[in-house]
Simulated scan of single mutants.
Amino acid sequence: MSSATSRPVSGRQARWQPHNDSRRERIVVSAIELLEQAPVGVEVPIMQIAEHAGLAKSVVYRQFAGRDELDRRIRREISDRFVADIEDALDIADGSIHSILVRTIGAVVTWIEDHPRLHEFLRTGPSEEGSEVDAMNALIATIAASTRALVTGLAGVVGVADDGSVDTMTFAIVSMTEATVTRWAGDPAPLLSREQLIEEVASYAWHVVDGVARRHGLTLDPEQQLVEIITQFAAPN
């Protein structure tokens, strides 16, 4: 199913494009707001989305070719919000390795706790047309790729060649974190508190990072500022 925005546009259509973009955004935001309030497993009707957006149902169908396209666009917006929150937390310029891990894992816990319905919706289908991968797995791959690029860049600074272990390491940490936090969030009586969970998962992630670093001849201090570690290894002997 092709997107309305992917078709060639005439001059008249181009003049209306900002207006149509605004309406699409309004529809998607309204759908997400309603989705947050809906019971688990309950689909929000297009009529309800249109009413919440202050638009006629026919306008929704003019902006999106059908329910599948609208749902893909909703999942893409949810994914973008999730990624933005995680990347804000994953700031290598601020903190030690341990504090960065705790902060980033804390952001994952907060997002899943605060948006359980959106998190669930990511598993209901893809965010891109033609994809067979659901939006949650695509999101995990996106965050892992972003983290991999960051770690690979740091490895290059300290003179360590990437032998492929960075790819495995980052995907393992990201997928482990999402799966563990999801299980915890869905448990009506979890054994660990929120703070205990974050510290526990951060310790797992640290052991993975430390193991990979040692195999490359690097000894890291989890409590040292990451910027200091990079400067130390990058300094000429």
Rank of each mutant, 00 (worst) to 15 (best):
S2N: 11
T5Y: 04
R7K: 07
P8Y: 07
V9Q: 05
Q13M: 09
P18I: 11
P18A: 10
S22V: 14
R23P: 01
R23W: 02
R24L: 09
E25N: 02
R26Y: 03
I27N: 00
V28Q: 08
A31N: 05
E33A: 09
L34K: 04
Q37W: 04
A38R: 01
A38G: 00
V40T: 14
G41C: 08
P45L: 14
I46Y: 11
M47F: 13
Q48Y: 09
I49Y: 04
H52R: 08
A53W: 03
A53G: 07
L55W: 01
A56N: 10
S58W: 13
S58K: 07
R62S: 08
F64Q: 09
F64R: 03
R67W: 02
E69R: 03
L70G: 08
R72D: 04
I74G: 04
R76S: 15
I78D: 02
F82L: 06
A84K: 05
I86H: 01
I86L: 11
L90T: 13
D91A: 12
A93W: 13
D94P: 06
S96A: 10
S96D: 00
G106T: 06
G106S: 05
T110G: 10
I112L: 14
E113I: 08
D114C: 05
H115E: 09
L122S: 10
R123K: 04
R123W: 06
T124Y: 06
S127V: 00
E132K: 10
E132P: 01
V133S: 06
A135T: 12
L139K: 00
L139Y: 06
A144T: 05
A145N: 13
S146V: 07
T147V: 15
A149E: 12
L150S: 09
V151W: 06
T152P: 01
L154K: 08
A155S: 02
G156F: 15
V158E: 10
A161D: 09
A161T: 12
A161Y: 04
G164N: 13
V166T: 07
M169E: 01
A172E: 10
A172T: 14
V174N: 11
T180Y: 01
V181E: 04
T182F: 13
R183T: 15
R183D: 15
A185F: 09
D187N: 15
D187Q: 10
P188I: 13
P188R: 11
P190N: 01
E195N: 11
I198V: 15
E199F: 06
A205D: 00
W206M: 13
W206C: 03
H207V: 14
V208K: 05
R214G: 15
H216T: 10
L218H: 02
D221F: 07
L226D: 03
E228I: 12
I229D: 05
T231V: 14
